[in-house]
């Protein structure tokens, strides 16, 4: 037993506190918005919007209103728009409380790799490097192991980095770990997962 995608998103949503301004990445992080409940959370879309609403109803799509994944979205009564320089000004300036992002690899020093696999098609980092360097808290949501069963929580990242020493907390299908002095610290294990199982699936040093 372990958490599925939705349970990981639900666990990540528990990291968010009332009043936070938050940026959600593409993939599982996008699902986090479904689990914020009654908390007053304002979502930032780095292409120039605070107060991102849900997808539009069919027929209401507006080509001038998209999120950072280029999907059509809606605005809320609290929404504010701004240009890309100001959008990343608030990211770089530390005004965004947290970013929840996916990852290919994370290591025990908090290094993050999520933008490039050498030898494969290179698409670009988008806003990921700016986000991890600028926001208050970086929470990574990812599968604990790859499809061959190898740990994605490493002693040292092998892929080109998105940021160095930037990750604060990692939420995987097996549990929650914090990046601390000397390695990763287990915060909790997923339902039905033992601490031994989590350790066995982790290459990074667990302190």
């Amino acid at each position: 037993m372990a958490w599925d995608r939705n349970q990981m998103a639900e666990r990540a949503a528990a990291e968010l506190e009332d009043g936070m301004y938050v940026n959600l990445g593409i993939g599982i992080p996008t699902l986090v918005a479904n689990y914020v409940g009654d908390k007053d959370i304002t979502l930032q879309s780095e292409n120039g919007m605070l107060g991102m609403g849900p997808f539009p109803f069919e027929g209401d799509e507006d080509p001038d209103l998209i999120n950072a994944g280029k999907q059509t979205i809606t605005e809320l009564n609290r929404t504010a728009y701004f240009d890309s320089a100001q959008s990343f000004g608030m990211i770089r300036g530390g005004k965004i409380a947290a970013a929840i992002l996916g990852a290919m690899e994370v290591d025990e020093k908090g290094d993050l790799a999520n933008w490039m696999i050498p030898g494969k098609l290179v698409k670009g980092m988008g806003g990921a490097m700016d986000l991890v360097a600028g926001v208050g808290r970086v929470i990574v949501v990812m599968d604990h192991t790859n499809k061959h069963g190898a740990s994605k929580l490493l002693k040292e990242c092998t892929l080109p980095l998105t940021g160095k020493g930037v990750v604060d907390r990692i939420i995987t299908n097996l549990g929650v770990l914090d990046v601390v002095e000397g390695g990763l610290q287990i915060v909790e294990t997923a339902d039905g997962v033992t601490e031994d199982e989590l350790r066995a699936a982790t290459e990074a040093t667990i302190v």
Partner: peptide, 8 residues
């Protein structure tokens, strides 16, 4: 529109 996404 690049990614048309809607909800029911």
């Amino acid at each position: 529109i690049e990614q048309r996404t809607v909800r029911q």
